[in-house]
Design a protein around this nucleic acid. Structure first.
Lengths: 326, 326
DNA sequence: ATGAAAGCGCTAACAT
DNA sequence: ATGTTAGCGCTTTCAT
């Protein structure tokens, strides 16, 4: 199969390349007749525009990069997928960059994104380095942040679930289900923007009610047993995410502790396994669809220089009641 | 921040653009001294090569497309992620194209991939249309197939788990665990290459032992109850994939049927939930790492016109024993 | 409404 | 070892 250039199309259609370009891009003036002729030839030849040439000329690639710290995480995976889907509908292609929480990889991806001249970047979470300096490298490429509070909000837009309110809802729910001594389970290392907000929501809720807030720093299953030995009155766990909730449930079951009778458990994220575990996991669900929608909308606004800088957009979560709580 | 072109670098380094290009691409001859000077300027200016221009000139994009039918499926998601990771290590970027089993989307993605002049395409599964004709559109772009038997093996490479052997292993395992009347669970619609191979492995194993092979076509949970009403002697299910296995386990438990005492269940794919469900699911695990490795290796060979056409590569599976079988 | 031509940033063939 | 230059396919300004 031969490969045609705009010159070939012009010749075959008996017009100039400028006219072909006008028709393709639906820009400038051309007669209906010319349009039909050109489009016919394009179809016949199966002509495909060369986006390298187009980008070289216009400096627009119609391509977006997504930086994601951990694509194995089902929340991130779903989010990225939804964003890609919505971007494709708007005729943008997407480079998905799984940084694996690895700074070196993140840098390599950023270089790649700059070389490929992506029109914009969506930065998702990532806490591995405090205040990672996008500024130096990304000054020229517009970007927005999801779940990562930017160093300088005035050069971007910040989008996130309302993690704090979600945690408040979770904690209040436990209390309304007669928990008197709830504890939170989290990992010591992972202190992303969103995790911090969840912790804050939990603590604040208990503070207001003058209840001690105990923190179980999970390292291995034994750390759960240990915690319960020290805090035997614990009657509920708010796990900072579903993976931790599931680990907790499995450990508690192995310890012959009944859920929810002895200890209730609530998670955060609503991952697929939450429905499958027994008892099924009560959890806080993030509105992935909405986050994706808002992210796409705002990165495109940034690209078009629409004045949306400095905005912080919080998306509501909702409680999914299942059987790990009363 | 200013943006520099190769011309600027040449001027700043006091050499010609050709020399800069040589240094950048580590091609041709240049003195150590020149190299150092050029690299220093590149670093100082934070110069980034313009891949649009490079691709326009060379017709090489260092970009690969992956066509995947359903990225929500955890097997596909992991596979795609591994492939992307390995490609990035080899300095290739990846466009992940989730076709959603939608022919129109697949076509749109293919057009995009051609416009963007990807160097190669990795086609994963997809059974939605028998013998989808890549030929017309992909004659020019090298591609390889994973889990989708190509119409013409002589223009590609076919890579897949050994699904048939996996199914044989699963079936034999059930029989070795004293199952006398195993049945297979599958969906009527989904007849991808790999699903067919699994079914074949199941049937062939039972045929050889002169055992009737019953097929439960799953449509909803009631179809499971119905099947058991009609085939009350069923003592084991081989589910064509883990999702179906998990659905079956949940339904059977709701029916107060004990697993594995009354009915054993074995799945295929080893998705994350398989560990979480109770009883945990015995399943056949695919070697995703290996498939990804082989896929990357072979698409790069195709791109370099290395003679690997017509090959069929089968990757071994392995049995993961858990508690849904004896 | 259409065409001619410059030029985006790069590579590679050719010259020195 | 280094420089000069044509040209990849496209868009866009300026003519007409």
């Amino acid at each position: 199969m031969e490969t045609y250039s705009i010159k070939d199309i012009a010749k075959l259609a008996g017009v100039s390349v400028a006219t072909v370009s006008r028709v393709i891009n639906n820009k400038g003036k051309y007669s209906q007749q010319t349009k039909e002729k050109v489009l016919r030839i394009i179809k016949e030849t199966n002509y495909k525009i060369d986006t390298s040439a187009q980008s070289l000329r216009t400096n627009i690639t119609h391509t977006i990069g997504i930086l994601v710290p951990d694509i194995e995480n089902s929340f991130f995976a779903n989010l990225v997928q939804k964003i890609e889907e919505k971007l494709f509908e708007k005729h943008y292609s997407t480079f998905i960059c799984n940084t694996d929480k690895n700074e070196k990889k993140e840098k390599a991806y950023l270089t790649m994104l700059e070389n490929k001249k992506v029109d914009g970047i969506i930065v998702i979470s990532g806490s591995y380095r405090q205040g990672f300096t996008f500024k130096s490298s990304l000054k020229s490429i517009p970007y927005i942040c999801i779940d990562r509070s930017p160093k300088n909000i005035n050069e971007t837009v910040f989008i996130s679930s309302n993690h704090k309110q979600g945690a408040i809802d979770a904690t209040n729910y436990l209390l309304s289900r007669h928990s008197i001594h709830p504890a939170i389970i989290m990992e010591k290392k992972n202190l992303s923007t969103s995790i911090k907000a969840r912790l804050e929501g939990f603590k604040q809720t208990l503070d207001q009610r003058h209840i001690d807030s105990n923190v179980l720093y999970y390292s291995n299953n034994h750390s759960i047993k240990e915690f319960i030995d020290i805090h035997p009155y614990t009657d509920a766990f708010f796990a900072i995410n579903d993976n931790l909730a599931i680990t907790a449930i499995m450990t508690l079951k192995a310890m012959k502790i009944r859920i929810p009778e002895d200890i209730q458990v609530i998670g955060f994220d609503n991952i697929p396994s939450a429905k499958v575990i027994e008892p099924s996991l009560t959890t806080i669900s993030q509105n992935i669809e909405e986050i994706a929608e808002v992210a796409v909308e705002n990165i495109l606004k940034r690209i078009q220089n629409f004045p949306n800088l400095g905005q912080q957009i919080l998306i509501a979560t909702h409680l999914v009641k299942r059987n790990s709580t009363y």
